[in-house]
Design a protein around this nucleic acid. Sequence first.
DNA 1: TTGATTTTTTAACATTTGTAAAAGGAATCG
DNA 2: CGATTCCTTTTACAAATGTTAAAAAATCAA
Lengths: 198, 198
Amino acid sequence: MTDQSSHFPIDYSPLFDYFDTFHRISKESKEAIAAICSLSKIPKNKDLQSIGHTCRTIYFVKKGIARIYYYKDGTDITESFAFENSLIARVESLFTGKPSRKGIQVLEDSDFIGISSPLLFDLYDQFPDIERLFRKIFESAYVETVNRIESLQFHSAEERYHALTQESPDFLKRIPLKYIASYLGITQVSLSRIRAQR
Amino acid sequence: MTDQSSHFPIDYSPLFDYFDTFHRISKESKEAIAAICSLSKIPKNKDLQSIGHTCRTIYFVKKGIARIYYYKDGTDITESFAFENSLIARVESLFTGKPSRKGIQVLEDSDFIGISSPLLFDLYDQFPDIERLFRKIFESAYVETVNRIESLQFHSAEERYHALTQESPDFLKRIPLKYIASYLGITQVSLSRIRAQR
DNA sequence: TTGATTTTTTAACATTTGTAAAAGGAATCG
DNA sequence: CGATTCCTTTTACAAATGTTAAAAAATCAA
């Protein structure tokens, strides 16, 4: 446990409110989940999880923003962002057990509730409602990812940028453009050009 | 039930062998799944599922190839392919219950085992091992999709083409290039150009 | 506040990819 | 077999995006 994590009393209500939007679970199940959580406070620009380690924690963003990133030929690329009241994990490592080539970096001073994934998966046997809850959560994330493929596969960079600004104006206010560019699959220069026209 | 589907005795062994690679389920669970399956034989170039309908069937490809496709500004775009011994479904409709803008077309004379998804989801309550099986199947599909995003987000068309030819030589042998082009996120002309160099 | 650092924009040019049209090949069907 | 249709390649040109470098703007820290 680092000095950034703690087992001091945590307010789990935002997490459980989030869970409720997918599937309601019993009081006992909530207690079982609470027992495998810890709080992490990470300052701006620091890594919550570093590249090369296997993903063994699913994070709920209580406050702040995080991004999953990796390097392609030395260039920093953002795979995804997570705002308040959402989960973030490097699923390609979480579900395969392999080390991740990706890291999680924090873009503002942020608070996370970390859920130990090995312990969580153990709970599935005893609490079927927890397994169902996370099944639904990841099914929903899967759908989002499929829709993102459609966006990358056959929308122009300009279309993707405008879709982003309309759907999530928060992106522009809170995330540096250099990170948004690679998220959209383009360079920072291209993004500047798109923003300049009009 | 169309004339292309039947409830005549089906050989489920390829399906259950496939399931076993994810999670072993009981004999009773297998029987319960078999009870909600039907066989579909679809001739080359016909649609297995047409655009506009809600996805209520998960298909296992026993023989042949299928692709999920849609139209973007009048252009036919392939989202994904499925070969023998894999599942295919329009998940963005399956998990949301909304009508799909996508269809499933068959590229060779093909045989499918169709699993009714509403009936399958009903089985989850009675057979937790079935829920776990499909949880793992879709987690795995989710991981594939995340990896595909990485490919589309920051690999050039040429890199994507060469990766495809190396990983799945079957693609080139069995799938028309016009479908492969849009799957890679490029035009047919661009693909021809990439193939021509060297 | 000031100076240093980081982020964003701009410019010039190279490369990749798209578009449209035509030609060549391959497959299909009577 | 021949004719038709569909698939793939090629060509020429246009548009989009990448690369590199520098300038401008914004942010950060002392």
